[in-house]
């Protein structure tokens, strides 16, 4: 079976984890890869911890089970750090991208992690400054591109612009805000 990259998003209902997973999938799909994006539906309510997943591959993806051993974990809400099973099923080379004001080493201590690569970014602040409200999902995509180094940033950026332009035809300020947020997160993401 072709190598399939698996991503798990941790968020809370209403924060846009599902939207981010689907948007990332759409963008990656446009870049010519095979991709899946799907949420885990639990009790659907605002604030409840939720999961969303991506699979990315150069070949057709057959499997439809939940992602249990992700290579990449993205956390949209720092308050989940102590609660959700952030590190569950993640291998030694796992990449963690966390929306927080803390530094990677502070988060490492909080999670009790010995391995993996940690990245942090203050996506709340970035989205507040660029988009005008706290929507951490788009900036986290920028952090994802930087942390994983899987996709060329310029091409990714262009495709996101295309996607946003389709979705927010009548609101150019939303498009620019989101693009700025992605760019800033790409630049500001901190590693150890």
């Amino acid at each position: 079976m072709a190598k399939v990259l698996e991503i798990r998003w941790h968020g809370r209902g209403g924060q846009g984890a599902k939207t981010a997973a689907l948007m990332l999938a759409e963008v990656v799909a446009e870049m010519g890869k095979y991709v899946q994006g799907f949420p885990e539906y639990g009790p659907e309510r605002m604030g409840a911890p939720i999961l969303a997943f991506n699979r990315i591959s150069d070949e057709k993806i057959h499997i439809h089970s939940n992602v249990v051993n992700p290579e990449i974990v993205i956390v949209l809400d720092a308050t989940l750090l102590g609660k959700a099973k952030i590190t569950q099923g993640v291998g030694e080379d796992g990449i963690y991208i966390i929306n927080t004001t803390k530094t990677p080493s502070e988060v490492r201590e909080l999670l009790g992690l010995d391995d993996g690569k940690l990245f942090t970014v203050d996506a709340n602040q970035i989205s507040l400054e660029t988009i005008g409200r706290v929507i951490p999902n788009t900036p986290l995509m920028g952090a994802f591109v930087k942390a994983t180094n899987l996709l060329p940033f310029d091409e990714f950026f262009d495709k996101v612009r295309g996607q946003l332009s389709k979705k927010f035809k009548s609101k150019p300020e939303v498009i620019e805000g989101n693009l700025e947020a992605i760019k800033r997160a790409y630049q500001e993401v901190k590693s150890e």
Binding site: L22, A29, Q36, G37, P39, H64
Partner: peptide
């Protein structure tokens, strides 16, 4: 088609 697994998953 499978509910959620197919209905709600983004696929190529």
């Amino acid at each position: 088609l499978d509910g959620f697994i197919t209905s709600h998953a983004l696929d190529i």
